[in-house]
Amino acid sequence: MKTNLKSLLISTVWLSALISSGAGAQPIAKEPVATPDNAVMLTVFLKHDQSRPLSELRAQLAKQEFYKVFPPAGVEVVSWNITMGIGQVIVLRLPASRLSAVNLALENTAWGTYRTEFFPTYDFKEIAQAEQNKVRQAQ
């Protein structure tokens, strides 16, 4: 009797843990991942509103939850730099299907603090290095 009660208790605890962990639930759809076949790069200029002090701009970003929302899931930040006199220059790599998510994240959280500009880009580094190597080897 004691063994059956112990087995029942262990089974109940195990089943409860299994249910609470979500096992058997529908799988959650994962965000698309940037691959050579679907990736785009996007350079984003966030131009500062120079008529307002930085503390005011930061307060607005916090209120609009900029850093909570940007960049959206599935978007890789390649670089994020401050360019004096312009603002922030961010290069993103993302699956093309996430482009609207980037746009919405910025519209909802950056507008009012920044003027935005977007430029599709691509990584030219390997191509340039190959051309340099070809020219240098020919000398």
Rank of each mutant, 00 (worst) to 15 (best):
T3S: 06
S7K: 10
S7W: 04
L9T: 15
I10F: 11
I10Y: 06
S11D: 10
W14H: 02
W14P: 03
L15G: 01
L18M: 05
I19P: 06
S20C: 04
S20W: 00
S20T: 06
S20E: 00
S21W: 07
G22H: 00
G22F: 00
G22M: 03
I28R: 04
P32S: 06
P32Y: 08
V33W: 00
A34H: 04
T35Q: 05
P36G: 02
P36E: 02
D37Q: 15
T43K: 11
V44E: 04
V44T: 03
V44M: 03
V44P: 09
F45M: 10
D49F: 03
D49G: 09
D49H: 08
Q50S: 15
R52Y: 03
P53M: 02
L54E: 15
R58P: 08
A59E: 04
A59N: 10
A59R: 04
Q60D: 14
K63F: 06
F66W: 08
Y67V: 04
K68H: 03
F70W: 02
P71R: 03
P72C: 02
A73P: 12
G74S: 02
G74N: 00
V75N: 10
V78T: 00
S79Y: 00
W80Q: 09
T83I: 12
T83K: 06
M84P: 14
I86A: 11
Q88M: 09
V89G: 06
L92T: 07
S97V: 13
R98L: 14
R98F: 13
S100P: 15
S100Q: 15
V102M: 07
N103I: 15
A105Q: 03
A105T: 06
E107G: 08
W111P: 02
W111N: 10
Y114M: 00
R115P: 07
T116G: 05
A128S: 12
A128R: 10
A130K: 08
Q132K: 12
N133Y: 04
K134A: 09
V135Y: 13
R136F: 01
R136P: 06
Q137R: 07
Q137T: 14
Q139V: 13
